[in-house]
């Protein structure tokens, strides 16, 4: 019960920020930063350091020494002279990270989606819908071309179509999101505030 009251008080501190920035919000914010950074640190010690570094070392998997050394290079950023060493682990991360994302991305966001456009349609309603879908996708892809677009009548019209469809999609997303966001407020009011009345 006391814990719940403290939670309620802190939530009020957060909401007070809407009215004006104030010391109570600042205090709550700093508390949150400290606690969440501490919690995040503990989690990475448990799920990262112990599970991915100490455990493998114990079982004799010495390959984790490589990332251990790379990680240590970051610590050298603390000293001016050795700061350049941090570039090595960064290079490792950049290279592997850039390479990893390519394949799966292409598969899920391009290949699968293009073939979804090719599924069979029948009936006038489906045909119209598929055509609108196709035009919206094609025109907005066209809008984003960088170098080949020339300022002609066709260009302005087709890219304009793309923008209009984009606006429809953005408007719809915005409209739908209103519901998501109000739900959050409903939940907070329901589960925390109204409990005390």
């Amino acid at each position: 019960m006391i814990l719940d009251l403290i939670t309620l008080a802190l939530i009020i501190c957060i909401f007070s920020f809407l009215f004006k920035d104030n010391p109570f919000f600042k205090f709550t914010e700093r508390l949150l930063v400290g606690v969440s950074a501490g919690y995040g640190f503990l989690i990475i010690i448990r799920d990262g350091f112990l599970a991915k570094f100490v455990d493998p070392l114990r079982t004799g998997d010495l390959s984790v020494i490589i990332p251990g050394l790379l990680g240590l290079m970051f610590v050298f950023t603390l000293f001016r002279r050795t700061a350049f060493l941090a570039k090595y682990p960064l290079a490792f991360l950049l290279g592997t990270g850039a390479g990893m994302e390519i394949g799966p991305r292409i598969e899920t966001s391009i290949i699968k989606q293009i073939s979804a456009m090719g599924s069979h349609v029948s009936g006038p309603v489906e045909i119209i819908n598929r055509t609108v879908l196709f035009i919206s996708a094609l025109s907005s892809l066209y809008y984003f071309l960088f170098a080949v677009r020339k300022n002609t009548k066709f260009d302005r019209f087709f890219a304009g179509t793309g923008i209009v469809f984009m606006m429809i999609a953005f408007g719809a997303t915005f409209g739908y999101t209103v519901m998501s966001r109000i739900s959050l407020l409903i939940d907070i009011i329901d589960s925390v505030v109204l409990r005390f009345f």
Binding site: V33, S36, A37
Partner: peptide, 11 residues
Amino acid sequence: VTDSQFPFAAS
């Protein structure tokens, strides 16, 4: 600052 989403936003 911190790695958690909303405390980061508040900060």
